[in-house]
Every structure is written in C-alpha cells, then in structure tokens.
Amino acid sequence: MVDTDNSLTLSASGLTRKYGNNVAVSDVSLALKKGEIIGLLGPNGAGKSTTMKMITGNLAPTEGSIKVCGIDLIDDPIIAKTKIGYLPEIPPVYKELRVNEYLKLVAKLHKVSSKRVSSAVDNAKERTGLTEMSERLIGSLSKGFQQRVGIAQAIIHEPEVVILDEPTVGLDPNQIIEIRSLIKELGEHHSVILSTHILPEVEAICDSVQILHKGKVVFDDEIGGLRKFRSGKSIQASFRTPPTQEILEKKLTNVKVSQVREGVYRISGLELEDDPTDVLVQLSVHEQWGLFELVGAQASVEEVFVELTTQDETAI
C-alpha cells in the first residue's frame, strides 16, 4: 500500500520496530498533508519517540516504508532528509557554542546555500524569539530558551515536514503558550507532527490526532472526533438538599449515577443527542434540590486511555 499522492508531504505505512522480541512500534501509519498538524498522543513508552526516530531516519524500521514528499527515506535518505526538520526529546544543542554560531552550523549542515545562511539564521531566531540571545552561549540559556534553540534548529532550512518530540516538556506556562502559538504558526506553512502526553495540548493545536498505546494506534481521527469522544460523557452536579441516588436514577433515564461525596453526584453514560442537563435543572427547581453547581466533566487523558485500551482489548 504505497501512497503516491503528491499533496502528501509525509506518508508512512506499516511502520514496525522490534528490539529483539520486544515490539516497540507495530504497524503505525501516518499521512500528512501540507499545512496540517498531527498530534501523536500516548502515555510514556507508547512508542511515540520511536515512531519519530524512524520518520526522521534516526532509526531504521524493521518493516514499513516512509516517503517524504514522494522520496523514499530508506532508499534516498540524503535527499529526503533535506525536507525534514526534527526536534528530538532532548534538544540537540552544543552547549559550548553561541546561538548564532550554532544556528549557522545547522544551516550549513542542512545545505542552506552560503548566501542565504545569515538570512535563514535571522529568520529562525525571529520566529522563535531568540534575536536577543544571539551572542549568548547555549549552555547558559534557560531550559525554555534551549528548547527554542531546538525548534529554531528544526525550522531553519524551511523543511516541508517539521517533527517535534514533546516540544513543551519542561517549560513554564507562559513559555508553553508561546511555543504552542509558534507551532500553530508553523502549521500554516509546514506540515507538523508533534508528540505529547498532554491531551489539551493536542486539542489546542492539532488538526488530527493519533493515539498510541503499547506501540499500536488505538485512535486515529480528526480533532473533532476526539472532542466528541471526550466530551458529553459525564456531568457532575452538586446539590444543597440532595435527592437520593435512586430518585435521580429514576427521574433521569438511561444514565448511571454515582455519588462523588455528600451532595455531589456524577452522572455518566450520556449521549450527545440525549442530554439530560435541561431535565436535571428543571427537576432541581421543581423539587427544590438546591442545585448550585453543574460541571460538564470532560474525560481526562487517563480515562480516554483506559477506555481506548479496554475497547481495543475487547475488540480482539
């Protein structure tokens, strides 16, 4: 199954990677269009980094094929790699170099023509907010700025595909917001793959998402699909004069009710089309339950993982 569609900037099919008998990644496929951001989501050890290493040519896949802009990464690595920018988990920076020196070196390594090197360096610094740090030694920069140097390094040669492995790990909230908006901006001109274990991050910036678990893809959909999957699953209601659990279950049809603590109930098993929120509010006014808080609880990452992985096992 080889995709020859020209609009795809990256297509990987049937990627499998084994370490001895241990299968780290099994049959992962990715297709990326220009201007699209894909999120790879998964708990630690799910195979996100391994997948990214294979796509960037840092690790040879045991099985499967990877094409970058129609060029086979395994047969023609040198040409294919000019079209990829990669930020590994740990930014690959030389701490003894200055930001300028380092970016110039990277531009040359990526075969940016010597006339364009300095403009490419300036451009990358501007986009990542590093202009003021130009003459600083990378080793003396904070973790957040080193991460930015890592991102600058990945985009300096204007690659078609940018691959970012956990780009916001270890940053403070302000920096996370900045980096996220930078990634969104990148997504306008490049195709971006990013990995993370933070669900809201994927929802905030990605167009589509793949969830990996133990090396297998357990969820692959547009971002809207994930939102649907997560939301509308349950709500949490707090009452001043609470009814009993049985009354609630009787009055609201087709739901499961569980008590979180005194006066607080979690109502789950909801379907989007059959939302009982209105009914609940009306009932509360009518019966004088004193409803004072109603929270639409979204499923957390853990719940999504649990649900997906248990689904997966029952499917087998």
Binding site: G57, N58, I78, I90, P92
Partner: peptide, 10 residues
C-alpha cells in the same frame, strides 16, 4: 543526544 542533529541532517 546531539548525534540526532547530525543523523537527521542530509
């Protein structure tokens, strides 16, 4: 982990 930089470069 800077080897990744060299290996990812063309």
């Amino acid at each position: 982990q800077t080897m990744a930089l060299l290996v990812s470069a063309p």
